[in-house]
């Protein structure tokens, strides 16, 4: 560890200092090596073998070739992108609108904030219970409401429909994760100097102009980060889709994480294929991460 070497030469003489150094860096390093580095390396290694937990015959990139040529792979990739984009953009629109509202400090704004944070903290399973029940064709309140008001003639099975299964999953996702964008944007809004608005008003700018010329530029960075980070997280989301539809009907909600799970744990385990697919997802993430690091330099924030 060259890092420790440098530190030692700089801080050298103090034993206590060295103790602190060890106490802070050893757990950090151990953690990253054991819980992240090793498993990921292990997975990448496994992806090169046929039946890695059994006969373990070296197969080169054969698993990768099998996965990429599987018809389901393209479907799952497209589904992942559609799901990530739609749920992120919807959350953003919702979050932005609401952040602007709450920033106005209307009465009940505090209660609204509490209300917004609750879904975000709920277990995914609870969210899925709620939404599968609400959207259920037989017992669901949404269907009953639509029937009573004559919008539909007979109950509609959202999660069974090849057209509506994905939108239904997206709605449940936005319900849960929508407040992420809200809280980030609210924080940025509250950091804007109120004098700017005051000056604009004095100069006779309309509300819209003030919004366009002051608010939007201040939020631009936050919005881009939300799209990127939230987008990645939604791309990687497993539990909410798995619990709602299991990937069906006819694979219309099968995303890459669902495909990984199916390959690894359903039927006879295919860990070679599953880890190869995980490797592909790892590469995709790495590309996005590089873009993120280059464009935003998030590490500057800690580079003291």
């Amino acid at each position: 560890m060259s890092a420790v070497g440098t530190l030692e030469s700089r801080l050298g003489e103090l034993d206590e200092k060295r103790l602190l150094l060890v106490a802070t860096f050893v757990p950090f390093t151990l953690f990253f090596v054991l819980v992240w580095g090793f498993p990921i390396g292990y997975a990448l290694g496994m992806s090169l073998f046929e039946d890695p937990t059994g006969t373990a015959a070296f197969a080169g990139l054969a698993n990768y070739a099998d996965v990429v040529t599987d018809d389901l792979f393209v479907t799952a990739l497209v589904n992942s992108v559609v799901y990530a984009l739609s749920s992120t953009l919807l959350s953003l629109v919702l979050g932005l609108g609401l952040a602007l509202v709450v920033n106005r400090e209307i009465r009940g704004g505090h209660a609204l904030r509490t209300m917004m944070i609750f879904p975000y903290l709920l277990p995914t399973l609870v969210v899925i219970f709620m939404w599968t029940f609400l959207l259920d064709p037989n017992v669901g309140a949404v269907n009953e409401f639509l029937l009573d008001n004559g919008v539909i003639d007979e109950p509609f099975a959202f999660f069974s429909s090849t057209t509506w299964a994905m939108p239904a999953v997206v709605v449940a996702s936005v319900w849960k994760y929508g407040s992420f964008a809200f809280f980030i944007l609210l924080a940025r809004l509250q950091a804007i100097d109120p004098n700017l608005y005051e000056r604009a008003r004095v100069e006779g700018a309309s509300t819209w102009q003030a919004f366009r010329d002051i608010t939007v530029p201040q939020l631009r960075g936050a919005i881009l980060i939300i799209i990127l980070v939230r987008g990645i997280w939604m791309f990687n989301k497993f539990d909410i889709i798995y619990l709602a539809t299991g990937g069906g009907p006819l694979d219309v909600t099968t995303t890459l994480p669902i495909m990984v799970y199916e390959m690894a744990f359903q039927g006879t385990p295919d860990f070679g294929g599953a880890t190869a697919l995980a490797g592909i997802m790892f590469l995709l993430l790495a590309v996005v991460a590089v873009v993120y690091f280059v464009a935003f330099k998030p590490e500057r924030e800690v580079a003291t």
Binding site: G54, I128, F159, G246, G248, G267, D270
Partner: peptide, 24 residues
């Protein structure tokens, strides 16, 4: 409509001897 474990997708390798796996 809840929680379907049962979307077993049929993959080509799915039936590679269970026996082998079990031994390991």
């Amino acid at each position: 409509m809840m929680y379907r474990m049962a979307y077993n997708r049929f993959t080509r390798r799915q039936f590679l001897g269970t026996a082998g796996a079990t031994t390991t």
